[in-house]
Nucleic acid binder design. Structure first.
Lengths: 154, 154
DNA sequence: TTAAATAGTACTATAATGGTACACAATAAA
DNA sequence: TTTATTGTGTACCATTATAGTACTATTTAA
């Protein structure tokens, strides 16, 4: 399914919560309680986002996490690569190792083209976009459905 | 890494080989020998491609597989969805099950937008494009490097 | 000094993936 | 009609990746 990992999905949920107040410092516990994601998991995700410079952490008492910049400048690509490493569909798109068949596989450079397109698509969507109210279009969705996050995954 | 499965990658290799002669019927053994992919694995991939109507199979002696249509009409999206199911980054993009947080997750519809963009990117590249000679651009790549496919993956 | 908070490391269980094996069905040619 | 050839379907196993957990160290405000 060309899927993202659960953690990445969680990350978007966490970030969209944090974006409600761009400057506030949130503790792991707070975030876990609000999102319904287990605390150790939240912690793991937050650490990865700090490494990727999407969040800033403050240690010690009164510490916590806050967005490193305004939601408009945090892209989906940022989030995905924070959690899953470089965005690439195939190995040969990132590794500088060879990827040729004896009979000659001209595919590589075209994969990299596709990758660029996809990367661009992901760069063009920011956290600010993500938290915009959904464009009213479909019917079922816009009713206020209340389902805990944990049930998202089968 | 937002990655495709190995099988999908293999599939593109197999298809690009088969596209060399659009009309020829290839046996599993032939394909396995040429690509260096183990026969049972090739067989599995070919069956999935038949189910997705990308290939046509002929049983019995002198049987084998052939492209179901010209390479120009086989898209990367076709191949990916044949091997991995519907193209979607998140669960909520495909399942009709709910995906809302109590606090309101406005993310979903924007994911579906991203999905559409990516899907479009994948639809726009065909097998014919994939087998085009690589646009001469980078240096290392265009030397005739000979590496067996099996080494592609760590 | 203490309590509150993140950082880092290592571990475990579960699920997904890749790969294999084998019995069955179809067909062309002898 | 028989036999060799080739795909079909199902089930299975091993390996790897993922998700989640636990524990200890470090930092800092009060």
């Amino acid at each position: 399914m060309l899927r993202l990992s659960k953690l990445t999905d969680y990350a978007t949920v966490i970030l969209s919560f944090m974006a409600k107040d761009e400057t506030q410092v949130y503790t792991t516990m707070e975030i876990a309680a609000t999102t319904g994601i287990a605390m150790p998991t939240v912690s793991k995700i937050l650490k990865l986002l700090v490494n990727a410079k999407v969040l800033i952490s403050t240690r010690g008492a009164k510490g916590g996490y806050a967005l490193a910049r305004v939601p408009e400048k945090i892209t989906v690509a940022n989030v995905i690569s924070a959690l899953e490493g470089p965005i690439a569909l195939t190995e040969c798109s990132i590794s500088q190792k060879g990827c040729e068949q004896a009979s000659g596989c001209g595919i590589r450079s075209n994969w990299s083209l596709i990758n660029q397109t996809i990367h661009h698509a992901l760069e063009s969507v920011t956290l600010a976009d993500m938290i915009k109210p959904a464009p009213v279009k479909d019917t079922i969705w816009n009713q206020e459905v209340i389902i805990p996050v944990s049930s998202l995954y089968r």
